[in-house]
Each structure stands twice: as C-alpha cells, then as structure tokens.
C-alpha cells in the first residue's frame, strides 16, 4: 500500500465527516481510528457506529513515515492504526503498541493460518501485535497486446525487445528487490558485493527503462502504451477494470510480500472499543465488502465465500502457497545498511 494523491483529498473529506456531533446526553463512547487514505469501505464505519453506538473519529495518512512521528510523540492520539508490517516492527521495538488478546477477537479464526505464520516468522512472533488487514505481493503488470510471451520471470525486465517500454519502481528497496530476486539473493541481503552486483544489473537495465515510477504506474499501464510495469498486486484488479488487456505475473524467482494490519496503541484510552472495531472488520461479510471496495487481497479466509469465484481463482490476487515459497518480507536493516542501498541506488541513474 503506497500513498495516493487522492488520500489527501479524502483525508479532508473524512475529517469533515468525523465531526458529526453526538446528541450530548451522556458521554458517548468514542474510538479514534488512523488508517491509510482510501483504505476502507466507508459504509462500514457508519455500520459500526450504528451497531455499537460508538463515535468513530476517523483520520487518514498517506505514508507510514507521516504517521509514525505523531504516534511517537503521543501514542494515545489514536486507538487503532493500520500501518505496514515494517513500520509495525519499528513501533513494536519502540514500545508504542500493546499486545493483542486473541480471545477478545471472536473472528480471529477467520484469518488464514499461512498468513499468520509468515508474519510470525518475520516480524511479529506469535502474532502478538498485528492483526492482518490486507496483504499483497510485488509483481509485473504487463499488457498482453504488447507482450505475447508468457511472463514468469523478472528477467523479462532486461529484455532488449521491450526497451523504452518498461516501468520500474522508484523506491530503493523495491528496485533492489527485483535485482536481488533475479540473482537469487534474499531481499534483506546486506552483503556489499551482492548489493554491488545488483546495482550493476540495475545499471544495465537503465537504458531500457521508460521511467521510474511510484503510483503513476497504474495510470501509465492503463493508458496502454507500455508493455511492462513493476506494481503492487493490490493495484491489479483496478487496472484490469480499466484496461482488460492487462495481466499480472508473480515471478517464479519470488518477490516481496507485504502486509498492512491493525494495531492497538500502547496508551489507547478506548481499548475495548478498539477490539470491537478490529473484530467487526474481521467478520467474513465485512471483510468481503471491504475487499470489494479496496481490491487489495484480504487474508480473511472466511470472507472468500462472499467473493466472486472468478476473482478467487485469479492467482494474481490470491496466489497459491506454492507461488509464495520464494517470497519474503522486508525487515528493517538498520540505518547503515539502508544508507548503503541508497548510495548504490544513486549510481544506477
């Protein structure tokens, strides 16, 4: 999940929605929610408020980095937040979160085992802090009108045939990930010779690249003149809706798998309400409804019975475990290593 331009607009809209005054009889229960922009079906907020009589104060952020300092300054500012997994790791380590009692979540069982396991393996042992909300992979979006071969490897991004028609991710870790996976390294590798090898590979790719993109990859691929683009899997269904020639491939060498999920802040003043919120969103039908709106894959297995068969069978959205075996999660590498990545990234362009 990356920032979107619309998020800012939405933020303002939602902020104005959130100030609907209560009746002022007795003190009403409130819940302060901090989420990505455009990252929930807003009907669900209203339904939740109605069902539990809790006022939801809903704010949005565009990047993890924007959210973090606010919570670091005062972790009671919000009760539930939905950061990405690497930021959860940082918040965990800095004591900004509280442990989640799974017995208070009647719908915890709706989350697929395999999703919990990978999170537990990489960043959150025993899933004590993060309740997965959306997840996805990074892969190649391609235009079947311009690419008539099977796409199953990152190698196609180095194919001279597609010179000037390749969109690469502009964020350092994502760009290096492509090279690392292609060369068979871990995406959390910090070995300097390996990294230099990756940088060399990316330098070779440079002349073939049309542009380095972040969010624009969606619109550029939808426009239809570009053959290949590196993209987050969550964007795929939207792109497909706009241009049916597009297809998504998760390369066999593996990729990055990422999660966004709900956490409860250390000093939350509305912990009970926060549990109700998380449990409410974990309900199968609500998760399905939410998926319909945001189109990012949901780890909620129970929700699948409410989701279109066609989409369920689309391996781009719901890859099989076999396809995920080479995928890894980013872990925070420390400032020194991240600097080395960045220094090398500058030599690519």
């Amino acid at each position: 999940m990356k920032k979107r331009i619309l998020a800012v607009v939405l933020c303002v809209l939602l902020a104005s929605l959130a100030v609907v005054p209560g009746c002022g009889k007795e003190e009403k229960k409130v819940l302060k929610v901090y989420n990505w922009g455009e990252y929930i079906d807003e009907d669900l907020i209203a339904e939740f408020e109605k069902e539990y009589g809790i006022d939801v104060i809903y704010d949005t952020f565009a990047t993890n980095e924007e959210m973090y300092p606010r919570i670091e300054a005062d972790s009671s500012l919000y009760d539930v937040i939905c950061p990405s997994e690497y930021m959860v790791e940082k918040m965990m380590k800095n004591g900004l979160l509280q442990e989640i009692d799974h017995t208070k979540l009647s719908n915890w069982k709706n989350i697929g085992e395999s999703y919990l396991k990978i999170l537990s393996d990489y960043i959150d042992p025993d899933n004590k802090y993060l309740v997965p909300y959306c997840w996805g992979t990074v892969g190649i979006l391609y235009n079947t009108k311009l690419v008539d071969e099977e796409v199953d490897s990152w190698g196609i991004l180095w194919d001279e045939k597609y010179a000037g028609s390749i969109l690469m991710q502009d964020s350092v870790r994502d760009a290096f990930m492509v090279a690392q996976k292609y060369l068979g390294y871990s995406l959390n590798d910090t070995d300097q010779t390996h990294l230099e090898e990756c940088a060399e590979l990316l330098r070779q790719q440079y002349p073939l690249v049309k542009s380095y993109v972040i969010d624009e990859v969606r619109d550029k691929m939808i426009a239809g003149n570009t053959a290949l683009g590196v993209i987050y899997s969550g964007e795929y269904l939207y792109c497909l809706e706009m241009n049916e020639d597009l297809a998504y491939a998760l390369p066999k060498e593996g990729s990055n798998v990422w999660y966004d999920g709900w956490v409860i802040t250390k000093n939350s003043k509305n912990v009970e309400e926060a549990y109700l919120w998380i449990d409410f969103l974990l309900r199968a039908e609500n998760a399905a409804k939410n998926f319909d709106y945001i189109t990012y894959p949901t780890p909620n297995v129970a929700a699948r019975e409410f989701i279109d068969e066609e989409i369920l069978n689309d391996q781009a959205v719901f890859p099989e475990d076999e396809q995920l075996k080479n995928c890894e999660m980013y872990i925070y590498l420390g400032q020194e290593a991240e600097n080395r990545y960045y220094e090398l990234w500058k030599t690519v362009k």
Binding site: D170, V209, Y342
Partner: peptide, 21 residues
Amino acid sequence: GGRKVLLIGNIIEQEFSTASN
C-alpha cells in the same frame, strides 16, 4: 524527467526526504 534523469537538486532533495541523510 520520468525520474530517469537525476539533477543535483534531485540528489539533495532525496537525501533529505527518502534517504533521511
């Protein structure tokens, strides 16, 4: 520049924003 061409201004901007150096 499609983020393909880095000017010295881009380098400096990125040091402050993405690289936080």
